[in-house]
């Protein structure tokens, strides 16, 4: 008694093959988009990229094609992003710890996570407008400080949730063991959780930095733009995304070219940060209990 197990092509098999095919195509399209973006930015940015671009500030007539570079924007972005990340850290670490040690998966835990996720979804242009109204109310002008504060607000939910996701996977046993030994919850938070949080914190910092360097709409109103390297928190500062944006708006082809080069610099920084966070968190994860 033999059973016909040979494949005879029914409709469902054709369907299976067809769906698999278009799924693969979709995946290739998405991956291809990434490749295309990098390709275009490299091909168009590389010719204009020069040593002067990254070591000099704009000289007179820079925006009409004369010499100089965008060191002001590169440094400005680094100041803005690291300031914002540092400020966001101060708040996000305790929030993530509180979420873990006190709220856990309780109802309040869900509310806080919900509000963090909602904050994450608020567009940076709204933060920018909000920041600007705040500055008017306080009588402040566009400055490095204002940019840092707004970037910190934007980065706060991203960083907190990143940490939260990492420490959530921390085994409860470990915590209970510490509690059983007579530690208070605060001590548990401080010792056990911080150690476990290390990969979470590094991931969060790098995520925050990446977001902070790339964000344009929020710093547009709050940090302003200047050709000088900021010397004080109260001075306005340039930023890379805006350097790209403004230079592309120029009618001079040389300046547009440098806009592409600035975009390449920005992309390289962000990719290094993003790849770095992968590498670091993979390394750090080895030393924690899963």
């Amino acid at each position: 008694m033999g059973f016909l197990m040979k494949k005879h092509w029914q409709r469902r098999h054709l369907m299976e093959a067809f769906m698999k095919f278009i799924m693969r195509v979709s995946l290739v399209i998405v991956a291809g988009a990434l490749g295309l973006i990098l390709w275009i930015v490299i091909v168009r940015g590389l010719p204009a990229l020069s040593w002067a671009m990254v070591t000099k500030i704009p000289e007179g007539g820079y925006y009409m094609g004369k010499g100089g570079g965008i060191l002001n924007a590169i440094l400005g972005s680094l100041y803005l992003a690291s300031g914002g990340t540092l400020l966001a850290m101060i708040f996000s670490v305790p929030i993530a710890m509180y979420l873990k040690t006190y709220l856990g998966d309780s109802k309040w835990g869900h509310y806080v996570r919900l509000s963090l996720d909602v904050l994450w979804g608020i567009p940076s242009i709204v933060y920018g407008a909000f920041g600007f109204t705040l500055m008017i109310a306080l009588g402040m002008r566009a400055s490095l400080l204002a940019g840092i504060v707004i970037l910190a607000l934007i980065e706060l939910p991203i960083m907190t949730r990143a940490m939260d996701e990492v420490i959530r996977r921390m085994p409860v046993d470990l915590e209970h063991a510490a509690l059983a030994l007579g530690s208070t919850k605060f001590e548990v938070a401080l010792r056990v959780v911080t150690r476990q949080m290390l990969p979470g914190i590094t991931t969060a910092i790098l995520l925050g930095l990446g977001r902070g360097i790339g964000d344009a709409a929020s710093v547009l109103f709050t940090a302003g733009y200047t050709d000088r390297i900021p010397t004080s928190l109260m001075r306005p500062t340039a930023s890379l995304p805006l350097a790209v944006f403004f230079q592309l708006g120029s009618p001079y082809p040389e300046v547009q070219q440098r806009g592409y080069a600035a975009a390449l610099i920005l992309t390289i920084i962000v990719l290094v940060v993003s790849l770095g966070s992968r590498w670091l968190s993979a390394r750090l994860n080895k030393y924690t209990i899963k």
Binding site: G2, F3, L4, M5, K6, K7, R12, H13
Partner: peptide, 20 residues
């Protein structure tokens, strides 16, 4: 082999195997 036929054979339809 099920009834003498190798279910891991090249031409075999896996869904048919699981039906049987």
């Amino acid at each position: 082999l099920v009834d003498g036929q190798n279910i891991y054979g090249r031409e075999v339809d896996v869904t048919e195997v699981r039906k049987v």
